[in-house]
Nucleic acid binder design. Structure first.
Length: 413
RNA sequence: GCGGGUGUAGCUCAGUUGGUUAGAGCGCCAGAUUGUGGAUCUGGAGGUCGCGGGAUCGUAGCCCGUCACUCGCCCCA
């Protein structure tokens, strides 16, 4: 543990990384605003109970991934995901009465996992939730908003939308039992991981990467055969809506969510560009969640996307804005440069001042900050009440009276 | 929590079967250039060879341990 190193699984976002990061978040915020989602935020830590109750005592997140601590007798946890906090806020404020609630969310999340590509211990998610609408129209809208965000980022074409239904609770109870019975019969040939999953999370076996498991899974009962007519109809409506919007998807019957409050639609936009991590934006319906937390029965659906993962998929780095560079020459130049710089900044122009060195040095500095133009202030210019403006791309330069300087700079926009 | 790979300058990497002052490119600083950037040339700074122990006359290179990074498993955005 070296104190001069970032904590394992955390990263500094230096300006270039930060620009990508900001681009992702700003683009998403703008895109979902068109769908009526409003930004909100909750604390980054909650009572541990908030996550324990919703994620279940035996889930991996609760048993080994939470950053928990105790302070003043309270058991607190840095949030591993956003939905639980949002739902807690809804209950705290009695907001379900104002349904539908449509929220956009951005912020850091914390999971104590072994870091790898596209997986960090502190990472950031963008997230939308629509709470209070049980109709399939909400599912369609949420998925469409996700597709819109990916499209606006220019990466939609490099992802695949996988979609599945987990049915209603009746369907799921039936299916779960069939599945457990089936896998019990083949338990001897299942991988060790999957035998463990039999107790904790049998649906997950469907998604096993073990070759032997895949063989057994191939003949496992299908969810479709356990769906109630109502659940089947719900899913058909979602698929139909996506078709009508021209959003391509693959039905993936192995796409599952382990936790009990999930139901109906589950979906993931996946990619092959991020190593072992495939999901870039994923979500589903969680009609049972708010009730499970102690609130009134309230349906909800949403998705989350990892900002770091999305950033990694961006092809072009957003360039830093190009400033103007003031290059003073001599003491009189420096004196005037100080006030002129501030004057231009107040007028809305991004301006860098060449801080030190001879003229050559300051011109180099101007070049290094990728300045659009240099503004030279020396004895000659001061005498004439002017500045020399040099276009650093073309190399052309001309003297401009100080009163006309802002108009001249505006032409570079 | 489990398994594989990698640690040499700010970055990317050389460094022969172990041999005496550990190199290059890029970047950085400065000069050529006291009113002109990019290009070029010259010079300079910068290294506990991840860390600790061991073997050896002698280690960046071998052995053991440890830490970090990285890839994968579990799980997940």
């Amino acid at each position: 543990m070296s104190a001069l190193q970032p904590v394992r699984g955390t990263h500094d976002l230096l300006p270039e990384d930060m620009r990508r990061h900001r681009h992702v978040v700003d683009t998403a915020r703008r895109a979902v605003a068109l769908y009526g989602y409003q930004e909100m935020s909750t604390p980054i830590f909650e009572f541990t109970e908030v996550f324990k109750r919703t994620l279940g005592d035996t889930s991996d997140i609760v048993t080994k991934e939470m950053y928990s601590f105790e302070r003043g007798g309270d058991h607190l946890t840095l949030r591993p995901e956003a939905t639980a906090g949002v739902c807690r806020a809804v209950i705290s404020g009695g907001l379900q009465q104002q349904a539908p609630l449509k929220y956009f969310y951005y912020g850091p999340m914390f999971r104590y996992e072994r870091p790898q590509k596209g997986r960090l211990r502190q990472f950031h998610q963008i997230d939308i939730e629509i709470i209070g609408i049980a109709e399939p129209l909400a599912d369609i809208e949420v998925i469409a908003a996700g597709a819109r965000v990916l499209d606006a980022l220019g990466i939609l074409k490099r992802t695949t939308l996988e979609i599945n239904t987990l049915g209603d609770s009746e369907s799921r109870t039936i299916y779960r039992q069939k599945l457990v019975d089936y896998f019990r019969a083949h338990q001897a040939r299942l991988s060790e991981d999957s035998v463990n999953r039999l107790e904790r999370n049998p649906l997950r076996i469907l998604d096993s990467k073990d070759d032997g498991d895949r063989h057994i899974v191939a003949d496992a009962p299908l969810f479709d055969d356990s769906l109630t007519p109502a659940a089947r109809d719900f899913f058909a409506k979602v698929c139909d809506g996506l078709n009508r919007l021209g959003i391509a998807f693959n039905r993936n019957q192995r796409l599952v969510r382990g936790l009990d409050y999930y139901c109906h639609t589950a979906f993931e936009f996946t990619t092959t560009e991020l190593g072992a991590q495939s999901a870039v934006l994923a979500g589903g319906r969680y009609d049972g969640l708010i009730e499970m937390m102690g609130g009134p029965p309230t349906p909800g659906i949403g998705w989350a996307a990892g900002v770091e993962r999305l950033s990694m998929m961006l092809r072009d780095v957003t360039p830093a804005p190009r400033p103007f560079a003031i290059v003073p020459v001599g003491p009189e130049g420096e004196a005037l440069a100080l006030t002129l710089t501030e004057d231009l900044r107040r007028a809305g122009f991004p301006v860098e001042l060449g801080y030190r060195g001879n003229m050559s040095r300051r011109m180099k500095a101007a070049n290094k900050v990728n300045a659009r133009a240099a503004i030279l202030i020396g004895e000659d210019e001061i005498k004439r009440g002017a500045a020399t403006v040099r276009d650093l791309d073309s190399g052309e330069q001309a003297e401009v009276p100080l009163q006309a300087l802002k108009d001249r700079l505006a032409q570079f926009r």
